[in-house]
């Protein structure tokens, strides 16, 4: 009587994400069909509008870039079993800081310096916002889920108030544009790639950041301590690991990553802060991180997938409501999580 399970095991592991993506796609098709549209036609259109055009690809890359950053904002603390729901608030604060700094800089400043200063402002703002939750956690034991959610509301309030009452240009809902020197050049402008799309050099920074985080997590002593603390806090304490330091660093790094995401949006695309500039992208970061199992390299793929869905959804907006794509996104996550759990039980 031979047991067939070990034979399947290897294949099964690779198939789990694929299987869940495929079933999510089928579900999507079903939903589209229920909305009285032809799913094949919609998928085809999406495909051509994204991978089939250089502008489309640029858009996907641009979205992917933000998703990588906000995904990291969730994934890094996640390794310590900290659930950072506050990506949105950190993104907002970062975006606001980048826009204000960029607008305040003189026009004559060298571009690299201007970009550096604005990005630094965004990272600092994001990091500080996340660190607030970190400090509340280590000092008073406040659950980070609750504090980051509340901090999201507070960030919305602060940015909203400051925008409407102090910084918005008369009869608009946006701030003064940043100086030309502070804008991050797009690939199109520099190299002529991705026709007219907002894809900019932040994408390279995003890939490098993900790589760096991966290296930090899996190949340094710091990451060794950090993962140990997340896996077995009691043992970490015995091993003389300072959990407070790790909690604060993880939250701070996560917030700074969200700040980088804000720089991509503000300095690379919008060039000013406006109401709704972040449009809930911070929350999508949670999904991006979960789909990747909080692994910084897998996160790139997961961000790419979400970028594809997000922009693809926009391209067929005239034919099918954007909400349908939100359903597909959310269903994919649920399916991946359930399939993974099921796979574990079966193996």
């Amino acid at each position: 009587m031979n047991n067939p399970v070990p034979m399947h095991r290897k294949y099964f592991r690779i198939f789990i994400p694929l299987l869940s993506l495929l079933s999510a796609l089928c579900l999507g098709a079903l939903v589209i069909a229920l909305a009285d549209r032809d799913p094949l036609m919609i998928f085809q259109k999406m495909f051509y509008a994204t991978l089939g055009s250089s502008y489309g690809m640029g858009q996907v890359l641009f979205k992917m870039t933000t998703f990588i950053f906000v995904g990291l904002a969730v994934a890094i603390p996640f390794r310590l079993r900290l659930f950072n729901i506050g990506g949105e608030g950190q993104l907002l604060m970062g975006a606001f800081a980048a826009a204000l700094t960029g607008a305040a800089l003189p026009e004559t400043i060298p571009s690299t310096v201007a970009i550096f200063l604005c990005t630094l402002a965004a990272m600092t703002a994001g990091a500080c916002w996340a660190l607030l939750a970190g400090v509340l956690k280590v000092q008073y034991g406040v659950n980070e889920v609750i504090s980051t959610i509340m901090l999201n509301f507070i960030a919305q309030g602060i940015t909203g108030y400051l925008l409407t009452c102090h910084f918005a240009l008369p009869s608009t809902v946006h701030t003064t544009p940043v100086t030309a020197a502070a804008t991050i050049p797009t690939f199109y402008k520099v190299a002529g790639w991705f026709t007219n799309s907002p894809a900019n050099f932040s994408t390279i920074v995003a890939l490098a950041t993900a790589l760096l985080c991966w290296f930090m997590m899996f190949h340094t002593r710091f990451g060794y301590e950090m993962r140990a603390t997340g896996l077995q806090p009691d043992a970490a304490r015995y091993g003389g690991i300072n959990a407070t330091v790790h909690t604060l660093t993880a939250m701070g790094t996560g917030g700074a990553a969200a700040g980088l995401g804000a720089a991509n949006i503000i300095l690379g695309y919008k060039h000013y802060y406006e109401a709704g500039a972040t449009s809930g992208i911070g929350f999508t970061g949670i999904a991006v991180a979960l789909l990747a199992g909080a692994h910084p390299l897998l996160l790139i793929l997961s961000a790419l997938f979400f970028g594809f869905l997000e922009y693809g959804g926009l391209t067929v907006n005239s034919m099918i409501p954007k909400e349908i794509f939100m359903i597909i996104e959310a269903a994919t996550i649920l399916l991946v999580i359930s399939f993974t759990a099921l796979g574990k039980r079966l193996l």
Binding site: R221, Y224, A228, L231, Q232, D234, A235, R237, Y238, G239
Partner: peptide
């Protein structure tokens, strides 16, 4: 519960708590 990280490898566990010793380090 206290002295090992069960998901870490045997080698990583032989380092646990001693990972600050210079002898084992290279770079970061």
């Amino acid at each position: 519960r206290h002295a090992v990280i069960t998901d870490y490898t045997v080698a990583e566990n032989l380092l646990f708590g001693r990972h600050r010793e210079r002898f084992f380090h290279r770079g970061a």
